[in-house]
Amino acid sequence: MRSLKPIVIFGESILPGENKTVNVEIARLHTTTKLDIPIIVRRSKVDGPVVLFSAGIHGDEINGIEIVRQVISQKINKPKKGTIICIPIINMYGFVNRSREFPDGRDLNRVFPGSKKGSLASRFAFHILTEVMPIVDYAVDFHSGGASRFNAPQIRLAENDAELKILADVFDAPFTLYSKNIAGSFRNSSAKLSVKMLLFEGGKSLDINIDIAKEGVNGVKRVLKHLDMLDPKHQTERQKSSSIYIEKSSWVRAKCSGMLHDNNTIGTFVKKGTLLATITDPFGKFERKVKAPNDGYVINANHSPIVYEGDAIYHLSNSVIKEIKKEPEIQSAMIAALENF
């Protein structure tokens, strides 16, 4: 069991039973204006795991930010036991600019573990990894599709991790994808610190979608209930069916440039040959049909009205496991892990 000692984040001490917002300043704007990144910490007086909910590592992915905002505003982050840390916007600089990248042009999610003396993005990655992640046991990092690409709500996790597999089952998003940890990513560096992190994808950039936010918030509540951290006043909702696990998937690309007319198949199962969209020129000279190359679920759709030849326009599953069984030995592994707290 952990002892009920203070936890320290960026020099700020948070005691058991205490609520505190730690305002982090890595660098000021070029106007010398101060720009804080709030880290919101709520601790129970009862010992338990430390869970992180983060979003906005890409500043234009607003759906994830909205999910963490709702977790805070609905007081879901008030734990029955343990500690809940919320960082609604990791990349505050990108959020201010409505941009995916840091001001130095770098993708923050490709520079981890970062460097104390590197670029601005690298320095920020370093501080998050060294100041916050060493005390975290479980995490969910919320993302959206980029460049007008709408992701059906999904959890991504690395294969062959029994504990993560159970957490993914508990989160119960409509889709769950096996996805390797990418070098330089927040998830990859967190895994090396033994943090069990799920990655949630849903919606598209510069957009707030009510249904996506609901999926994310309900998943958070189910995870907290599973860890015995959810305040009993919060009710959880189950999916009507188990999450659909996808082992393999591939992109359908535009065979010509033009205006894309989407047939709204996102999140649905389509048969080979199903009409996904039509690409037209703006002058009424041609119409090109985009058909599903195989049976599968549409897990991402490009919502841009204009596409170029070769653009990724649909992400389609190739190999699916419809029903997931929770093996007793994996459940035992999870229980054993929780007994360490």
Rank of each mutant, 00 (worst) to 15 (best):
M1W: 05
I7F: 06
I7V: 15
I9W: 06
P16V: 06
G17W: 07
G17L: 08
E18D: 13
K20P: 08
T21P: 09
T21K: 03
T21Y: 05
V22I: 12
V24D: 00
I26M: 08
H30R: 04
D36V: 00
D36H: 02
K45E: 13
K45A: 12
G48C: 15
G56N: 04
G56F: 01
I62C: 05
N63H: 11
N63K: 09
G64C: 05
I65N: 05
I67L: 06
V68S: 01
I76Y: 07
N77A: 07
K78P: 02
I87D: 04
I89R: 04
F95P: 02
V96G: 02
P103L: 12
D104V: 06
L108R: 09
N109D: 13
N109I: 09
N109M: 07
N109V: 10
V111E: 04
S115Q: 14
G118E: 04
F126Y: 09
M133T: 12
Y138M: 10
D141S: 02
D141C: 01
F142R: 01
F142C: 03
G145H: 01
I155L: 14
I155E: 09
R156H: 06
L157A: 08
A158V: 08
A162E: 14
E163V: 14
F171H: 14
S179A: 15
K180C: 07
A183H: 03
G184E: 02
S189M: 12
K196N: 08
L198V: 14
G203A: 08
I208E: 06
I210Q: 12
I210A: 12
D211T: 14
I212C: 04
A213M: 12
K214H: 03
K214D: 00
G219L: 13
V223N: 07
H226E: 09
H226D: 12
M229G: 00
Q235T: 13
E237G: 01
S241P: 02
E247W: 09
K248T: 15
R253I: 15
S257D: 09
L260H: 04
N264C: 13
T265N: 01
I266P: 05
I266M: 12
T268V: 09
G273E: 02
T274K: 10
I279C: 03
R288T: 03
Y297M: 10
V298L: 14
H303K: 13
P305N: 12
E309C: 15
D311H: 02
D311S: 07
I313V: 05
H315W: 02
L316R: 08
L316H: 10
E323F: 10
K326H: 10
Q331S: 13
A337L: 03
A337T: 04
L338W: 15
L338G: 12
E339W: 00
